[in-house]
């Protein structure tokens, strides 16, 4: 198991947003969480990415409990995430955004950095090479030097995934990767998600609304309603499950 949630619960002002949920994600899996608005899927996401502290239960990542690990520490442990509304460094270029992901892992000290010593230069070359690989992988060559603010929404979405990949994560959390994208861009997103898993071996957990995307990329789907699991299994089975259909359409 790469990530395991054990009887995870969280309440906000007496309302149980997530109610004793357990699931396990295997390495190399694309695991999707679906559910109507307010079902608790984003809450689960924020529990795993450590924005919220659970009121009960445990999260284990890669054999280590992360239930009390602060959000800035999970990047180093191998978890990267994207945001539904994109959080990039808007005044910086695509390359610089990606480089931030690398530089956080820099091992050199302040003085060496300021003097740009040979050891720092070599490290910088490694980082640049790494970033170029990601840029090539996600076909962002044309936008390499562009400032984020000048890019189309669909491209920014891909850049944000690229920046997450620069952290070399074992687990990538995608928060509604298709939101704000047109159908063509959504098709592209399907390919990126598959490639990230197939070529880079990164495990993916995502929250997603677009059922066509969910069906095309997920290995397993977890459906939620009112903070509880109502179905878990193969995408087609879950999406056509009567309880799931009822949750979306009402009685």
């Amino acid at each position: 198991m790469l990530l395991e949630a054990r009887e995870l619960s969280v309440s906000f002002g007496g309302i149980k947003a997530v109610d004793s949920i357990s699931f396990a994600v295997e390495p190399g899996e694309i695991f999707t969480i679906i559910g109507p608005n307010g079902a608790g899927k984003t809450t689960i996401f924020n529990l795993v990415s450590r924005i919220y502290n659970p009121t009960g239960g445990e999260i284990v990542f890669d054999g280590r409990p992360i239930t009390r690990v602060p959000p800035q520490a999970i990047a180093r442990m191998g978890i990267a995430r994207t945001f539904q509304n994109i959080e990039l460094f808007d005044h910086a270029s695509v390359i610089d955004n990606l480089l931030v992901g690398c530089h956080i892992r820099s091992r050199t000290n302040l003085l060496a950095d300021m003097l740009f010593l040979p050891v720092v230069q070599r490290q910088e070359e490694t980082f640049r090479r790494k970033v170029e690989e990601i840029i090539e992988f996600l076909e962002l060559e044309h936008h390499r030097e562009a400032t984020i603010g000048s890019l189309a929404y669909g491209i920014r979405k891909v850049v944000e995934i690229g920046r997450a990949l620069a952290l070399e994560p074992k687990l990538l959390l995608l928060d509604e990767p298709s939101s704000g994208l047109n159908p063509e861009e959504t098709d592209d997103m399907v390919h990126w998600i598959r490639d990230i898993r197939d070529d880079l071996g990164v495990t993916i957990i995502m929250v997603e609304h677009d059922m066509s995307l969910v069906r095309r990329v997920s290995d397993r789907v977890l459906a939620m309603e009112s903070g509880r699991i109502i179905a878990l299994g193969a995408p087609d089975a879950v999406v056509s499950d009567p309880q799931v259909v009822r949750a979306y359409l009402g009685d």
């Binding site: 990415s49 959000p71 800035q72 520490a73 999970i74 990047a75 180093r76 990267a80 995430r81 945001f83 959080e87 990039l88 460094f89 931030v100 992901g101 956080i104 892992r105 920046r163 997450a164 952290l167």
Partner: peptide, 8 residues
Amino acid sequence: LAATYMGV
């Protein structure tokens, strides 16, 4: 937010 998830 983004800086936090870059490990800052």
